[in-house]
Nucleic acid binder design. Structure first.
Lengths: 334, 334
DNA sequence: CGCTTGCGCGCAAGCGCTTGCGTAACATGT
DNA sequence: ACATGTTACGCAAGCGCTTGCGCGCAAGCG
């Protein structure tokens, strides 16, 4: 991979001219342009973006710090982020926070040391005490993703409270009274909001909420599985379940399978987060679908605008979800 | 974010010394070390890896060019790659090839311009004519992932032929004779190998293979759906289906749902690629599971070893798959 | 007490680009 | 013919690090 120097020599001009021709930053005579371009062609020259970044103090790259890379929900988000970033001429640097504040800080450090021009972060539980204060002290543009722990940052997330309330009301309308919810990791704003949604739904339906029916699923499959077992072991087990996200839905289903319980015949289940295949397999899950692609796109959009103008006031974007009515709620039973 | 210069000034030493202390590249007196470290602490200094990369001609970053970021199969791979890369002190740059040779070339260019130290690539169909010859001419270490189009590169992939043959034999053993396969995009080696596996399975089972029963699903959901419809529209429709990958499985299932066909009662289905939830939803798919995490890990391992020693002969690693026997094959019907 | 050793450190030349400043060469107006 | 623009380009100083080379100094030696 040739350097600009070699191209310049071959074209019989200075590196300055090569640079300007390639970047279009200064007019050049047609003859010169052609000679430079020909030399580029001939040498197979590719700009060294590292050198460019050092000189320009901009890397044309964005950092994405997220957890659960394997989660298909985030998969969609990542795909959308990559597409948008690439459209804007930026490359994506990827880091997995592992939902752990310490590791998250390491990842963010690594990304900043790479001098990303902007950072997309799905803050872990605990971010508010660790990485967020640190980021606030840096000058780097940041957009928070999926979770919204701080109004001081730009952030984009789905609506959580109303959609969850709707799920609960739907179950209540079918006659359920003992409606349990398996909720995600504590300090996540998504968890808090979905719990509020649960309470709101119960209240609207005129059902007294019982805190014992709110079980911590830790946003993880196996924790959710255990939590579901605990709920079902109660003397007065719930007749309907709300799962707080897709990971936990798998855990909940596993617990139900462990006990040979059928959905929705033996117990009703509705979930936050949809699956692409949910239509095709039984039980067909009644779910709230997030606009994952849109989430990623908007996040990049926000980030680019902030990079363009750092003095913008912080913005919080909420995206509407979709209620997908299928069978697992038990509507079609009678 | 302070520069090394400022740290040096604060510590009353030269940048040379700061550099050596931070990198451990030269002994320094204990007193100096402490002063430097204190100055680093005080200024919140973070190394500028861009400058370092320029000076060292190494970026400590790996490129991952892959398609279908949203595909959970690749999600697992990405997660494993990220984990391994990060363990080795490398950052991941991510690009989506979109399974399109032209875009793939753009992505690879972008990654190389970023001067990644090594490249992981899931070559698109058509890579052999475009990006691969280009890469062969560069000096950059490359490992091919999932597909194995060229013995000239290091590559790691699952076994495809035998596992597919096994799926087919399994169906044949149940009495099926008209066994169709929905196969992936043409020029993919995975497709070729799985087709070979199909033929091999038919042969072993003593069933005459009919090429009309090999339908192109293009590795895409909707193409697979259409292909399935075509198969079922035949005067002598298949009684069993083999799906060539997880994306297409969704399409196949959708086509079956379109027609109200039940699996396995009306038609048997087995698939290449497993799903995490496949146990929990009906029909429970009988499938071949790839060791996705292992795939990612081994790929990074191979890449690192190649980076360490560019003169190694090219290696091709094949990973064993797992046959997961569930219900969609129809074994438990009678 | 000179002379070698080795230790601890700084100088300065890069790495491959970008970009402000300057300067020829030529066109324009009067 | 002379001032005044305009056009086309090169010089060189960075960007923030790394690293080969060399120098002063205290310790060790005969």
């Amino acid at each position: 991979m040739a350097t600009m120097e070699q191209v310049a020599r071959l074209a019989g001009v200075s590196v300055t001219t090569v640079s300007h021709v390639l970047n279009g930053t200064r007019p050049a005579s047609e003859a010169t342009r052609r000679r430079v371009l020909a030399a580029v062609e001939q040498t197979g020259y590719r700009p060294n973006t590292i050198a460019r970044a050092l000189a320009r103090a901009r890397t044309q790259s964005l950092g994405l710090a997220i957890s659960g890379l394997a989660n298909p929900y985030f998969g969609d988000v990542i795909a959308a982020v990559e597409a948008e970033a690439s459209r804007a001429g930026h490359t994506l640097l990827l880091g997995d926070t592992r939902e752990d504040p310490a590791h998250e800080l390491r990842i963010v450090h690594a990304l900043l040391e790479r001098r990303v021009d902007g950072l997309l972060l799905a803050p872990s539980p605990g971010a508010a005490e660790h990485v967020l204060p640190y980021l606030a002290a840096q000058a780097v543009p940041v957009v928070l993703l999926d979770r919204t722990p701080s109004e001081a940052f730009d952030q984009v997330a789905s609506e959580n409270e109303e959609p969850t309330a709707h799920l609960v009301e739907h179950l209540a309308a079918l006659g359920h009274r003992r409606i349990a919810m398996i909720v995600g990791a504590p300090a996540l704003t998504t968890t808090e909001e979905r719990v509020r949604g649960y309470r709101l739904g119960m209240e609207r339906a005129g059902v007294r909420a019982d805190d014992a029916l709110i079980a911590g699923g830790g946003s993880q499959r196996d924790v959710a599985r255990a939590a579901t077992h605990e709920l079902l072991d109660r003397p007065d087990p719930p007749t309907a379940l709300v799962s707080g996200n897709n990971f936990m839905t798998i855990g909940v289903m596993r617990a139900l399978a462990d006990r040979g319980l059928r959905v929705p015949e033996d117990i009703a289940l509705v979930t936050f987060d949809d699956f692409e295949w949910a239509d095709l397999f039984a039980p067909r899950l009644t779910a709230v679908a997030q606009p994952t692609g849109e989430l990623g796109r908007r996040a990049v959009e926000l980030l680019l605008s902030r990079m363009a103008d750092p003095d913008l006031p912080p913005r919080t974007v909420r995206l509407p979800t979709t209620f997908v009515h299928r069978d697992s709620c038990g509507c079609h039973l009678e």
